[in-house]
């Protein structure tokens, strides 16, 4: 177990003209082993989200310019061809976003939305996938998950939607889960 799960070296993100760049992430380096949890703390605008997004290469390039190395299981994600990224996203690295109110498609039931990632990444039958979705909803503390499969996002409160988001991120049992301020905009009682 000498190879770390995630190792980031000199990760930088720049915007703006090359001659006068705006550096939003400046040479970030850290590493994590499997089973570890790492918290990144900083004031707003300090680049936490940018770091998270650039690990999964979700920043549109251009206008962003991302440099550095992101080793995941010894493989440099920055040098992976773009078309190979969907296989990594969701399957190996899951991500929970900041805005629970708008991070779910309003026209698709939560059951189908959680199922989407499983359907794409795992060779499972529809019945197995349904079982997995129910188990995931139970895992995130959704009461009565079976009857909630057919519910739409607008029928849930923000906290419940964030649980659905968490279930989506964990749907394919990723090795790494990136949570970008998952409790923003939620009340403390949940």
């Amino acid at each position: 177990m000498t190879v770390p799960l995630l190792e980031i070296r000199n990760l930088s993100v720049e915007f703006g003209p090359v001659s006068r760049p705006l550096r939003v992430v400046d040479s970030v380096s850290f590493s994590m082993r499997a089973g570890e949890a790492l918290g990144v703390v900083g004031e707003s605008g300090s680049g936490k989200s940018m770091t998270a997004l650039s690990i999964l290469r979700l920043l549109p390039e251009p206008p962003a310019r991302v440099s550095g190395e992101v080793y995941f299981n010894g493989r440099d994600l920055m040098r992976l061809p773009k078309r190979d990224m969907p296989a990594v996203r969701g399957k190996e690295i899951g991500m929970i976003f900041q805005e629970p109110m708008s991070s779910l498609n309003p026209l698709i039931t939560i059951g189908d939305q959680i199922d989407e990632a499983i359907m794409l990444h795992e060779p499972m039958s529809a019945v197995e996938r349904r079982e997995r979705v129910i188990a995931l909803l139970r895992l995130v503390g959704m009461p009565d998950p079976v009857s909630r499969l057919g519910a739409y996002p607008d029928q849930f409160s923000g906290g419940m939607r964030q649980r659905v988001m968490a279930a989506m991120a964990m749907a394919c049992t990723p090795q790494l889960l990136i949570a970008d301020e998952p409790t923003t905009a939620l009340d403390v009682t949940i």
Partner: peptide, 8 residues
């Protein structure tokens, strides 16, 4: 964005 992050 969430769907892209989920590998869709």
């Amino acid at each position: 964005e969430a769907a892209i992050a989920a590998g869709v």
